[in-house]
Each structure stands twice: as structure tokens, then as C-alpha cells.
Design a protein around this nucleic acid. Structure first.
Length: 156
DNA sequence: GCCAACGTTGGC
DNA sequence: GCCAACGTTGGC
């Protein structure tokens, strides 16, 4: 069982969108970065991930999702009308992958980036999302990082 | 295989 | 809206 962090811009797809989806489940599609794609393909059913809100008023971790369908070809890459269409991704040789995630827990309050930064020299000193210049939309998180941030959420 | 140009991300 | 950081593209 592994842990992850997945970014989304809430103006496009927020944790409330996921909560409102059928069975609180949605495909996590549109990832167009090779390193992030490789992490998507490593995910296993039952893995847990933080749902991170980026490029918004209060960036931070909004809750926890669970992987309920392992990596499969991203259908939006085949759809010429989709913003994420990629003509180089072929059905018989797909370039991009996605997973399905189900909402596990929405935090009462977002654990803000500002809050995470208070621990960037301590328990979160190896946290990838806090590293300078990091832009990866899908990153692995260690068990201890995961549990620590989850504990911050419940202590608010 | 190098690297300049370009586009995107994401915090501020 | 700015800009630093970084990934990707494409000419050579």
C-alpha cells in the first residue's frame, strides 16, 4: 500500500466536485506529464492519496481519496473535442493513463500550504510538493508524511 | 545528443 | 499579472 498526492485546480475539479460525483468516484484524467503518468501507473487499488488544491486562494490538502481502479488509458487523450486531446496517443499504443479515485474523507478545514510550510524543515523535510520549483501533479508521499498531515487535519 | 526557444505550472 | 522553475520541442 502506497501513498500519493494529487493536485487539481479547484476551479476545474475540486474535492466538492468529487463529492458530488456518482458514488463519489471519478476518473483522474488529463495528466500530461510523463513522470506523473508513471506514478499513476504505479498506483494500486486501495492506495490512498491527498487531494491537493492548487492555483487557488488557499492552496493545500483538502482531503483523502482512495484508488479504486488502477491505471488505464486516459480516454480524454483520444477525444478530439477534449482540452486534453493528444493526437499522438493511439488506442493501440496509448501515451496517457488515468486512475479512478473515490472520496475517502473531506477535511473539515483545508490543511493549507502555509501550514505545511511550518514543517518543511521538520517532519515534512522530504515532502516533494514543498520542494522548490516542484510542479509535478502526482507525487509519492511517505507513510509518515501521510499520517502526519492527516493528523494535522484532525487537530484543527 | 545538445541546447535555445517556447509553453506551462503554481505561488505570490 | 508576474515570474521563477522546469518540461518539451525541434533545429542542427
Amino acid at each position: 500500500m502506497n501513498y500519493w498526492l494529487m493536485k487539481s485546480e479547484p476551479s476545474t475539479f475540486s474535492i466538492d466536485h468529487l463529492a458530488a460525483a456518482k458514488k463519489s468516484t471519478s476518473g483522474w484524467d488529463g495528466v500530461r506529464n510523463f513522470q506523473a503518468r508513471n506514478f499513476l501507473r504505479e498506483m494500486k487499488n486501495g492506495d490512498l492519496a491527498f487531494f491537493y488544491h492548487s492555483s487557488c486562494d488557499v492552496p493545500g490538502v483538502a482531503g483523502i481519496v482512495k484508488v479504486v481502479r488502477e491505471g488505464y488509458p486516459d480516454p480524454t487523450a483520444f477525444d478530439a473535442k477534449d482540452d486534453h486531446y493528444d493526437p499522438d496517443s493511439k488506442r493501440d499504443n496509448p501515451r496517457w493513463y488515468c486512475v479512478d479515485v473515490k472520496l475517502e474523507k473531506k477535511f473539515d478545514e483545508v490543511v493549507t500550504l502555509e501550514e505545511l510550510r511550518k514543517h518543511e524543515k521538520g517532519k515534512l523535510k522530504n515532502m516533494i510538493v514543498l520542494k522548490r520549483g516542484n510542479r509535478l501533479s502526482v507525487t509519492p508521499v511517505t507513510k509518515s508524511e501521510f499520517e502526519f498531515i492527516a493528523s494535522l487535519a484532525t487537530s484543527i
